[in-house]
């Protein structure tokens, strides 16, 4: 009924920005106007989206989960080990996702049952999960299990567990028409999460907890259970990202995703989620993640180095937040001026 309302949302601004970005990049380098190329390039950042989308839910509750980058490696190495043990690779995939869920549940239970800062808890699990991912193959090897795969230790150290079956590699190489499977998967994931966040009781509870946890308790919100599920979803998303990277790089490694923390959190924050809780949308995170991803691709394509891109992304994050703060301060200033003038007018 009132469609102009949507024009003023942050998500709409992000959508405009995304289109503008692609146009500008395309003018500089026409490759970007090739839809197939554009879609193919999403493979380089789909894992960021897989992890950032459910992290949005956690941040809405005023929490944070930085252990996702370790869960990626843990899921990847789990998949590799289970497969090396002779299990069907898709069963191994399911086990890897289960590990992500359990890791998330561990975070969630710890966060919801204690008053310890979620940053501290997920910092601890960041180290713990990374350590498990690194240590497991060695331990299994010592126990006499050929954990490093057929190529042995030296090859493992260099490129992880390789030789994964073609059917598994096709998960990222395959396309529907010109759309890569992972991109379809991430859109579906975003759709499901979006419905969950914006249309279900669970999603509503997330906002209520983020805005006023005390009032949520007084209103009878099952705050502990909701928090556990938020962290479980975050762990699950990170595991999906790990599995996707495993297929993309055709090897299972413990250190996959190690440098993804900055882009993941940048995507969520740029997408409109407030680090202090209570706001954020799945669509916002999706769009911001894509803007960042294409920006990277575009800059790389015109010869900007990876390092400079990092600087740009960091600067973007800070300026976006600073602008948000300035707008806020200016808004309060205007409100005060208005109140004063009203008083004097009387």
């Amino acid at each position: 009924m009132n469609w102009t309302r949507y024009l003023r949302t942050w998500e709409f601004a992000l959508a405009v920005l995304l289109v503008l970005e692609i146009v500008v990049l395309g003018v500089i380098n026409p490759v970007f106007f090739n839809l197939e190329n554009l879609l193919y390039s999403t493979l380089d950042f789909t894992h960021i989206l897989f992890a950032a989308l459910p992290l949005t839910l956690v941040i809405i509750t005023a929490g944070i989960d930085i252990s996702g980058v370790s869960i990626m490696g843990l899921a990847s190495i789990t998949l590799g080990l289970v497969w090396v043990a002779g299990v069907n690779v898709f069963v191994a995939l399911a086990v890897a996702l289960l590990v992500g869920v359990l890791a998330g549940a561990f975070n969630g239970v710890f966060v919801s049952r204690t008053d310890v800062n979620p940053l501290v808890i997920t910092l601890g699990t960041l180290f713990m999960f990374a350590g498990l991912a690194q240590g497991m193959p060695a331990l299994l090897d010592k126990l006499g299990f050929k954990a490093y795969g057929s190529a042995g230790l030296a090859a493992y150290q260099y490129e992880g567990i390789t030789g994964l079956p073609e059917s598994f590699i096709m998960l990222t190489e395959g396309t529907v028409g010109i759309v890569p499977y992972p991109f379809i998967a991430v859109l579906l994931f975003a759709l499901v999460l979006s419905l969950l966040l914006h249309r279900t009781r669970f999603g509503r509870y997330l906002y209520l907890i983020g805005v006023n946890p005390k009032a949520a308790i007084y209103s009878g919100v099952p705050i502990r259970r909701v928090l556990v599920w938020a962290y479980v979803l975050s762990g699950f998303g990170a595991a999906l990202a790990g599995v996707m990277l495993t297929s993309y790089f055709t090897s299972a490694r413990a250190d996959l995703g190690g440098d993804a923390l900055l882009p993941i959190i940048t995507a969520v924050v740029l997408g409109g989620a407030d680090i202090l809780g209570g706001s954020g949308t799945i669509l916002g995170t999706l769009l911001a993640g894509m803007i960042l991803g294409f920006l990277r691709q575009g800059l790389l394509a015109i010869g900007v180095t990876n390092d400079l891109i990092q600087v740009v992304v960091g600067g973007l994050l800070i300026s976006a937040m600073a602008a948000k703060q300035l707008i806020h301060v200016y808004g309060e200033y205007r409100l005060k001026r208005w109140a004063l003038s009203k008083k004097e007018g009387r």
């Binding site: 940048t266 680090i275 937040m321 703060q325």
Partner: peptide, 11 residues
């Protein structure tokens, strides 16, 4: 600039 510390230093 009042940017939350974790965001500022992550940037």
């Amino acid at each position: 600039l009042r940017v939350p510390p974790i965001i500022m230093t992550l940037g």
